[in-house]
Simulated scan of single mutants.
Amino acid sequence: MTFQKREMMLIDRLEPFLAELDYSDVVLIAARGSKTLPYYAVGYDGELDRWTFVSLGRLPLGNETPTFLYLICFPDWHGERFAKVGIGLINRIREHERHGGEVLHMIELPRWHARIAETMILADRPVYRPRTPLPQNGDTECMPWDFGLKLKLDRYLKQAVAKAH
């Protein structure tokens, strides 16, 4: 399959996902024809009153790009307790552990499925922002402690796989 065909198939898969983002005026930004530049979505976040970029990664974004969907709790982050959902490679998870995070759950899956699941979780969870930001700017994916301890990633995975296909 040609690169152009793969790119068009990716864009077809991204368009329904853009509608799931909790922003207004969402558009896809892509360096069409580039095999190395990333794809982004940009939309207006009314809660924060600013435009927000969401990295969607580089081609390929299918099963060839494995990543982890993870849930980490922070029992004592500068006197606060909360949980955080995220996606990334193992080194990102280990960095959270070095800063006191404890992994509650992590699942390896295609990056595409992880992005959809994370977006659905973030839309469902009560918003929590720690007073002291996390070192990797992950404080936007945080949630109250009790909510995080009850969160079932598997429930969102099934929905994400269904949306991706």
Rank of each mutant, 00 (worst) to 15 (best):
129 R>K: 15
94 R>V: 14
89 L>D: 10
83 A>K: 00
117 A>K: 07
86 G>Q: 01
84 K>H: 08
117 A>N: 07
141 E>A: 04
82 F>E: 02
134 L>I: 10
86 G>C: 05
112 W>T: 06
127 V>Y: 12
83 A>R: 02
128 Y>V: 10
90 I>T: 06
120 M>A: 13
141 E>Q: 11
91 N>C: 13
113 H>D: 09
144 P>R: 05
106 M>K: 15
85 V>S: 07
127 V>L: 13
101 G>Y: 02
84 K>S: 07
136 Q>H: 04
124 D>V: 03
134 L>P: 00
138 G>N: 03
130 P>Q: 11
140 T>K: 13
96 H>C: 03
130 P>I: 14
127 V>T: 14
123 A>M: 10
130 P>N: 15
104 L>M: 15
145 W>K: 04
114 A>Q: 02
146 D>H: 09
142 C>M: 04
105 H>A: 14
95 E>A: 10
92 R>E: 08
90 I>Y: 00
116 I>N: 01
81 R>T: 06
125 R>M: 13
88 G>F: 02
107 I>M: 14
123 A>K: 14
91 N>M: 02
105 H>N: 10
82 F>A: 04
97 E>A: 06
89 L>R: 15
117 A>Q: 08
109 L>Y: 05
110 P>V: 05
139 D>R: 03
81 R>D: 01
96 H>D: 15
147 F>P: 00
105 H>Y: 09
132 T>Y: 12
137 N>H: 13
127 V>M: 13
125 R>V: 15
121 I>Q: 00
122 L>P: 00
87 I>P: 04
112 W>H: 09
125 R>W: 08
126 P>W: 10
144 P>Q: 10
146 D>K: 01
88 G>R: 10
94 R>Y: 08
142 C>T: 05
144 P>T: 08
141 E>V: 12
145 W>A: 02
130 P>R: 09
102 E>Y: 09
143 M>Q: 03
102 E>R: 11
126 P>C: 06
96 H>P: 03
98 R>N: 12
102 E>D: 08
81 R>G: 03
97 E>S: 07
111 R>I: 01
129 R>A: 13
143 M>L: 15
116 I>H: 09
85 V>W: 01
119 T>D: 08
83 A>P: 05
111 R>Q: 09
105 H>C: 11
108 E>S: 14
107 I>E: 11
84 K>W: 04
143 M>V: 03
147 F>Y: 15
145 W>F: 15
131 R>L: 13
146 D>G: 05
132 T>Q: 07
102 E>P: 01
123 A>F: 12
128 Y>N: 12
115 R>G: 07
128 Y>I: 12
95 E>V: 12
97 E>G: 03
108 E>G: 05
